[in-house]
Computed example of a mutant assay.
Amino acid sequence: MTQQATQDLYENIRPYHDDEVADVLARLAHNPEFLDAITRYRLPRLAQYAPWLARALAGIAVKRQMRGVDSVGKLQDHIAYYMRRMLATTTDGFEVTGLDKLDSDTAYLFIGNHRDITLDPAFVNYALYQAGRNTVRIAIGDNLLQKPYVTDLMRLNKSFIVPRSAKGKRAMLTAYQALSGYIRHSISVDNHSVWLAQREGRAKNGIDRADPAIIKMLTMARRQHDKEASFADAIRELRMVPVSISYEYDPCDLQKARELHALHTEGRYEKVEFEDIRSIVAGITGAKGRIHLNFGEVLDADFETPDQVAEEITRQVLDGYHLFPSHELALEASGLAPDLIDMSEVTSADRERFTTRLESVPGHLRDWWLAQYANPALNRAGRLPET
């Protein structure tokens, strides 16, 4: 298949190419909703009293900031600057382990646990960028792309679209076949790494488990292309690497506790309009403490079933997950599994910070808040409480 034919085949889901960047940026600079979103955060008073002026100033600022940006690489140079600033102002440290064991010229399918809508792959990208490696193409659910400007922003930053809103079994099958084909093409033909969450949606309760259905989707393309291919060969071709990300504190922990409580008490939780966008902003701007990112080992065993692959991903994610003082203190406060608690690295300052955060959580939400931090330790030990 020619490159042009491949581009056309995945045109509706793939990231933008370099030759599309200038036009998309020009479109964004004139998009009223995008400019209004900027002014609400950067010029709130002016946006309230003179929205037309705030919008005009935002448009000028976007054009100035993006002057000379005519490729995805140059755009990501800009993003790296903001990542450095975000790390300096909202975190207490960022540690990366395991990346040095992976070949710098080989594409991998990084499949990891999921805590933050945008920051999980952003930190993977930043680790790769800092190491002088090519960044990843990022899988993002179409449920997050509620506005055309959001779609443009994500696809500019090498995101491709995961279909979650397709209606009917036939439409879903077609959509997932295209998704599987694109991921396989990216890894095996383009030699371009991909990031994908190990399950749909964030693990809001702190329980990380890979979903076998994701593995089935990933092998569709190879099995379609080669009916004789073994399941193990289809997995090996993708060069899957489990990735663990651990945040000392989650800026969205209270909102997640509210959602978990509502699901438990009412059986459902209704998101308000643009709640996911607000979660993205909260994740970026909120205090996160320390962050640890671990790259595992390539899955190249003779796997026979999606369940076996999911189990190995889960094992590596849990083994690579770093437990911070917040996790140990939450485990202590929960009263569960006291024998698992390790206070060897917990300082009085850690305890004071944890206590202050916990005291700000409404009483009826505290168990759900604590669970997010305690569950990684319980999950690793196979000691999760029954629900």
Rank of each mutant, 00 (worst) to 15 (best):
M1D: 06
Q3R: 15
Q7G: 00
E11T: 06
Y16C: 04
Y16E: 03
H17Y: 04
V21E: 11
A22M: 04
A26H: 09
E33V: 10
L35E: 05
R40I: 01
P51N: 08
A54W: 05
G59V: 05
M86R: 12
F94V: 09
E95C: 01
V96P: 01
Y108M: 05
N113G: 04
N113Y: 05
P121E: 09
N125G: 15
A131D: 14
G132S: 12
I138G: 08
A139Q: 12
L145G: 07
P163H: 11
R164Q: 12
S186L: 11
S193P: 06
W195Y: 14
G206Q: 07
D211L: 02
M220E: 05
M220V: 12
A234P: 11
S244R: 05
I245G: 02
Y249W: 14
E259M: 06
H261R: 14
G267E: 14
R268W: 01
Y269Q: 07
E270G: 00
K271S: 07
V272Q: 14
F274T: 01
I277Q: 14
A282K: 13
A282E: 13
G283A: 08
I291Q: 03
T305Q: 11
Q308E: 15
E312Y: 01
Q316D: 13
A330P: 00
L331P: 05
G335H: 07
A337V: 06
L340D: 02
S344P: 10
V361W: 04
A374P: 04
R380E: 02
